[in-house]
Simulated scan of single mutants.
Amino acid sequence: MKKDVDDYLQEGIYGAKETKPAERKRFLGSLRERIVFALTKGQVMRAKGLAELEAEIKSHPDAKLLLNGDISYRFLKDYRLLADKYGVHSTSISNREAETEIGAVLTYDHAIDKEQIFLEEKEETNEEDKPEAISVTRFLKKIFTGK
């Protein structure tokens, strides 16, 4: 398809046309089909997924690590060090107009179509949160406090 003058003017005024802009905003400029592994902001700030990310970096040494620039450097430091350790390029992406829950993305410049890209967190349950424990706690509280 040949570009005409109107196409050049539109591109000059509004910038180059971008495929899937909503997906690119969510995944720090990358597309879902290119992603090897992704962590949410909360996971990055709690240092979750470092071991899993390391395993993925070892398996995909040609990928690059995109980090959400809206997260404080102190939370991103370990992820950057991990990328440096294996010679993987890492970049902070800051886009003030786009709001995303994604904190880190290991990605390629081409499609790989990996099905499972997110860290699956195991639910941590406290003994005190179980219904039986709550009723026992209430029972003991009644005995000792009389209430």
Rank of each mutant, 00 (worst) to 15 (best):
L9H: 08
G15R: 01
L119R: 08
G42S: 06
R74F: 10
L31H: 07
L9P: 01
Q43Y: 02
R24G: 07
V88R: 14
D84T: 05
Y86G: 11
F139T: 10
R96P: 07
E52V: 09
K41V: 14
G69D: 03
F144E: 04
G87C: 11
R80I: 11
A98V: 01
E99W: 02
T40H: 06
Y79K: 05
F75V: 10
Y86R: 07
F118W: 13
E52A: 15
G103V: 11
Q116Y: 06
E120K: 04
F27A: 08
S72I: 00
F144I: 06
D4V: 03
F37P: 01
R34Q: 14
Y86N: 10
T40K: 06
A98G: 12
P131R: 03
I117T: 07
E18T: 10
K58E: 12
K142Y: 00
T91D: 06
Y86A: 11
G49N: 11
R46E: 15
R96T: 08
Y79G: 13
T107Q: 06
A133M: 09
G12R: 02
V88K: 09
E128R: 07
D113G: 05
V105K: 12
L66G: 13
L50Y: 09
K41Q: 04
K77C: 04
S92T: 06
A104L: 11
D78I: 06
L39I: 07
H110N: 08
V136K: 14
I102P: 00
E128T: 09
D78Y: 10
T125A: 04
K41F: 01
T19P: 12
N95S: 13
Y73D: 15
L28V: 11
S72V: 00
S135R: 04
H110S: 10
E121A: 10
I143D: 02
A38I: 05
T137V: 02
A111N: 12
Y8T: 03
E97I: 03
A63G: 13
E101H: 01
F75A: 15
A38F: 08
E101L: 12
Y14H: 11
E54I: 02
I93Q: 00
M1V: 14
D62H: 06
I57N: 14
L28P: 13
K2E: 14
V88A: 00
K122Q: 12
S90E: 09
D113V: 03
P131N: 02
K85E: 03
I102H: 05
V5N: 03
K142M: 04
E120C: 04
D62V: 12
